[in-house]
C-alpha cells in the first residue's frame, strides 16, 4: 500500500518536473529558433544597417526596418500619452477616494475590458475611431486623412492597455502603508497634496513597471493595430499619417514570402526583434514588481 502511494508520488513528481522542463525550454527554443531563422539576413547585412535603412523593398532585396520601428514607436508613444495619465488618475481615484462598493464594481468591469479579444477592439477602431478622426479631428487641424493613421492605432492601443496598467497600479497603491498617508494628512496637507507628494512618489517604481509592461503589450499588439493603422511602409511624419508597426509587417506578409530569398529571414528577424525587446521589458518590469511584493510581504 505504502509503496504504491510513494510510487504514485514519485510518478507525479517526475512527470510534472518533465513538463516544467519542457515548457520552460520553449523560451530557449523560441529565441534560438528565431536567431537561426534570421541568420541568413544578418549574414548578408549588418545589424546596424538593417535597423537604420529606410527602404523596404523585398523584391529588390532592400530590407530596411526603420519605417516599421518608427511606426511601432509612434503608435506606442501616442497610446502612452493617452493612457498613462488616465490610468494613474483612475487608479488613484479607485484606491483613495472611491467607496469599497464602487471599487468592487469598477474593477471587474476593467477585467472585462481585458477579456475582450483584440479583433473586437479593431472592429471598434474601424467603426468609430477611424471615421471620427477623418470627419472631426483631422479637419480641426486642417489635415486631410483617410483616418487610418498612427493616431487611430494609438487610441485603440490606449484602450487596450488600460486594464493592465490600472490593475497593476491599483495593486501597487494598495501596498502603501496607511501610516504614511495619515502622517501627511495630520500635518495639514490636503488629500491631493498627500497623493502628489507621498503616494505617487512611493508608487513610482510600480507605476514605471506598469508602464513598461504596457509598452511591451503595445509593441506586440498585432491585429487591432493592423486594422486601423493604414499599413504604409514609410516613416510617419505626423499622427495623421499611416504607420506600419512590426507585428503588422509579420502578419501581413507571412505565407506569401516563400519565393523571395531572404524574405522569410527578414520576417523572422522582425519577430526576433519583437521577442528580444519584449522579453527584456517584461524581465525588467517583473523584477521591479517582485521586489515591491517582497518588500511589503516579507
Amino acid at each position: 500500500m505504502n509503496t504504491i502511494r510513494l510510487l504514485k508520488d514519485k510518478i507525479v513528481r517526475n512527470s510534472s518536473a518533465l513538463l516544467l522542463f519542457l515548457s520552460l525550454s520553449v523560451v530557449v527554443f523560441m529565441g534560438l529558433g528565431l536567431v537561426y531563422k534570421s541568420w541568413p539576413l544578418l549574414e548578408s547585412e549588418s545589424l546596424f544597417r538593417l535597423l537604420t535603412e529606410k527602404i523596404w523593398s523585398p523584391m529588390k532585396g532592400y530590407f530596411g526596418f526603420l519605417p516599421f520601428i518608427a511606426g511601432t514607436l509612434a503608435v506606442t508613444t501616442v497610446a502612452l500619452i493617452i493612457a498613462v495619465p488616465l490610468c494613474i488618475l483612475t487608479a488613484v481615484y479607485l484606491t483613495e477616494y472611491a467607496s469599497k462598493g464602487l471599487r468592487n464594481s469598477i474593477l471587474p468591469l476593467i477585467n472585462v475590458l481585458a477579456a475582450l479579444p483584440p479583433v473586437l477592439y479593431g472592429v471598434w477602431g474601424v467603426l468609430f475611431v477611424v471615421p471620427m478622426i477623418k470627419e472631426y479631428i483631422a479637419p480641426i487641424f486642417g489635415v486631410e486623412t483617410s483616418g487610418y493613421s498612427v493616431l487611430a492605432a494609438g487610441i485603440v492601443l490606449a484602450v487596450m492597455i488600460f486594464p493592465i496598467m490600472i490593475s497593476i497600479i491599483v495593486e501597487v497603491l494598495q501596498t502603501i502603508p496607511d501610516e504614511l498617508k495619515a502622517a501627511s494628512l495630520s500635518l495639514g496637507a490636503t488629500k491631493w497634496e498627500t497623493i502628489q507628494h507621498i503616494i505617487l512618489a512611493k508608487a513610482k517604481p510600480g507605476i514605471i513597471a506598469a508602464t513598461v509592461l504596457a509598452i511591451s503589450r503595445a509593441f506586440g499588439e498585432t491585429i487591432a493595430v493592423l486594422m486601423v493603422c493604414g499599413n504604409i511602409p514609410k516613416i510617419p511624419t505626423s499622427i495623421f499619417d499611416a504607420g506600419y508597426p512590426i507585428p503588422a509587417l509579420i502578419a501581413n506578409n507571412f505565407g506569401e514570402m516563400m519565393s523571395i530569398p531572404l524574405y522569410e529571414s527578414a520576417l523572422m528577424f522582425s519577430a526576433l526583434l519583437l521577442f528580444a525587446i519584449i522579453f527584456l521589458f517584461n524581465f525588467i518590469a517583473r523584477i521591479i514588481l517582485n521586489r515591491l511584493e517582497n518588500k511589503y510581504n516579507g
Binding site: V26, L34, G220, I278, F283
Partner: peptide, 18 residues
Amino acid sequence: DILYGIPSIVYGAIGFSI
C-alpha cells in the same frame, strides 16, 4: 510571467516555421 507577455504573433511565427 515573461512568456505571458510575449505577443501571440511571435508564437504564430514560430509555430509557422515549425
